[in-house]
């Protein structure tokens, strides 16, 4: 069975700054990593392959050419191949356009059993691409999977994490799932894996290669537009209380009492 793992390359830190003059993100000098949530998706893909005794783990991503390094890293962590969707025409995509582009790549890949994604990316934090992708491909979707109880070529039984416990759900394959951190502990790349990654050739597909409709990708395929970015506003500094603990608390208590808060 082929397992497709979708990954995103994100900045290594979320401490991004805004250039106040241009109102754009300052991205220079920020190192890139595989979205941490996606490392669980990749690990689970590799584990399913190991569990079933055979299969292919294909890692798929969309982004600029430098995302190739994230795909190579995936190979070092157990993936068999990496495919990068890279084309200027994809730039500026929101989640709807991204899910379309990915769905076209999945169709080109062809036969597959399960698509595994991380629950969300740490930069955009939307958690939208996976459910959108399942809808594009018209196949079942289960979010927040914390365990794959059973998997065959035809179906999977999974545990879906909820706020107060978990649902046990059976779904026929092919399907899309997102996984949460609890599902596994990602491995560290072995020396052998690193060697393999160095030699691995990453396939790059353009919009034309996947026969994507230009109206549905990139900026033109994105119904949402960011019209402004800004630094979050602080709620403003309050009152500072100093002194010995008993006095401090007297003052504090007085304030809270005056405000009818306590």
């Amino acid at each position: 069975m082929r397992l497709i793992v979708c990954i995103k390359q994100v900045p290594a830190t979320t401490k991004v700054k805004i250039n106040p003059e241009t109102n754009t993100l300052i991205r220079e000098g920020v190192e890139s990593i595989i979205n941490p949530f996606d490392t669980y998706a990749l690990e689970e893909g590799v584990r399913i392959k190991e569990r079933m005794g055979d299969g292919v783990v294909t890692v798929l991503s969309m982004g600029p050419p430098q995302v190739e390094s994230a795909l190579k890293e995936s190979v070092s962590l157990g993936a068999d191949e990496g495919i990068l969707l890279s084309d200027r025409a994809f730039a500026g995509a929101d989640t709807l356009a991204t899910s379309y582009a990915l769905s076209m790549a999945v169709k080109k890949i062809g036969d597959f059993g399960l698509i595994i994604c991380g629950k969300q990316a740490v930069d955009g934090d939307t958690a939208q691409v996976a459910p959108e992708l399942s809808e594009r491909l018209d196949i079942p979707f289960v979010a927040y999977v914390r365990k794959i109880v059973e998997i065959t070529n035809e179906k999977a039984v999974v545990e879906r994490m909820t706020d107060h416990g978990y649902d046990v759900i059976e779904l026929p394959l092919p399907a899309v799932i997102t996984v949460v951190k609890d599902i596994n502990e990602p491995r560290i790349a072995s020396l052998k894996g690193k060697m393999r990654a160095r030699k691995a050739a990453i396939t790059v597909w353009t919009a034309k290669d996947v026969q994507a409709d230009e109206e549905l990708i990139g900026l033109s395929g994105s119904p949402t537009k960011v019209i402004k970015i800004f630094a979050p506003k602080s709620r403003g500094k309050g009152v500072s209380i100093t002194g010995e603990p008993p006095e401090i608390v007297d003052t504090l208590y007085g304030h809270l009492k005056d405000g009818h808060i306590i």
Binding site: V16, D123, P223, V226, I227, K228, I229, A231, P232
Partner: peptide
């Protein structure tokens, strides 16, 4: 909405759908 773990805020519109 916040993005990048709350380090920036973004205002987004969906004008034509």
């Amino acid at each position: 909405r916040p993005a990048f773990g709350g380090n920036i805020m973004a205002t987004i519109i969906c004008a034509n759908h």
